[in-house]
Write a protein that binds this DNA or RNA. Structure first.
Lengths: 143, 143
DNA sequence: CCGGATCCGTTTCGATACTG
DNA sequence: CAGTATCGAAACGGATCCGG
């Protein structure tokens, strides 16, 4: 299995730790799908259209769980697993939003106009709703 | 020379393009050093303490210039080069700020408390100053 | 000395195939 | 469904070399 990427751990720079996560094309995509698209399962991510390979997905999910950004639970189904964002994970919402807005402004994306508009015109409200949605979903599943 | 990382180019996801950049541990560090630390030269980045290798630095600088986030100019010195953020590059400031705040909140960093405080307590003003500083520096050098 | 370019051994990535 | 096993292709980092 691929080893932890330690090369991003730098001495005393304010965003060093974040780059353990962000210095990788896949992790943020997983977080985004979890946060904005309601995806929760291994297969959701695997077929999300980005074309991640299963072994890479396994590794990144484990890494994110390891970093305390995701929790892994058994679904009611008992055969399946469900991944959920932790508080630390949902706290990435502002970063994601800024990133999405930047991408939308500077590159061609076919992001849903509706969502972009909501993000741009009332960022605080948008973020509040993301958090509320997260809390609600979370409280519906007994830990 | 290392080839462009195309694996991050995904179909129609709102942050796909950004990940060409961000899906790499080094690019954001360079942008940050440029934006917040006043570093401008090859050697600045090379000795920034993060331990990037010269060949990797060369590649990342070229990539960032290529992506339209950096401009490369000859310094008054004529032996040296100076790298500057473009408008597209400076537009990443909100992303960086959110990232830094997230890292500060969720991991141990020794980021300067003063700066973090300024970012957190008055984000808009902080960003405004970053942009003003950028414009000022830029106008001092005839293109 | 500055800003790279090139070569090379090692690590990590990722596509495919396979499994409980 | 949720992962392993395999294995070739990259990216990485260190060292060294080069042109101005």
């Amino acid at each position: 299995m691929p080893r932890r990427v330690d090369s991003a751990r730098r001495s005393g720079c304010p965003i060093s730790i974040a780059l353990e996560l962000l210095g990788d094309p896949w992790s943020l995509l997983i977080v985004r799908d979890l946060m904005f698209k309601g995806m929760t399962s291994f297969l959701d991510f695997l077929n999300a259209g980005e074309g991640i390979a299963s072994n890479i997905l396994t590794d990144r999910l484990a890494r994110l769980v390891d970093a305390g950004m995701l929790e892994k639970h058994r679904a009611k189904d008992r055969r399946r697993f469900v991944y959920r964002l932790t508080a630390k994970g949902i706290a990435l919402a502002p970063v994601l939003v800024e990133l999405i807005l930047w991408s939308d402004a500077h590159e061609e994306t076919d992001a849903p106009r509706q969502t972009i508009k909501a993000m741009r015109e009332n960022r605080a409200e948008f973020l509040r709703r993301v958090r509320i949605k997260w809390k609600t979903e979370r409280s519906h599943r007994p830990g």
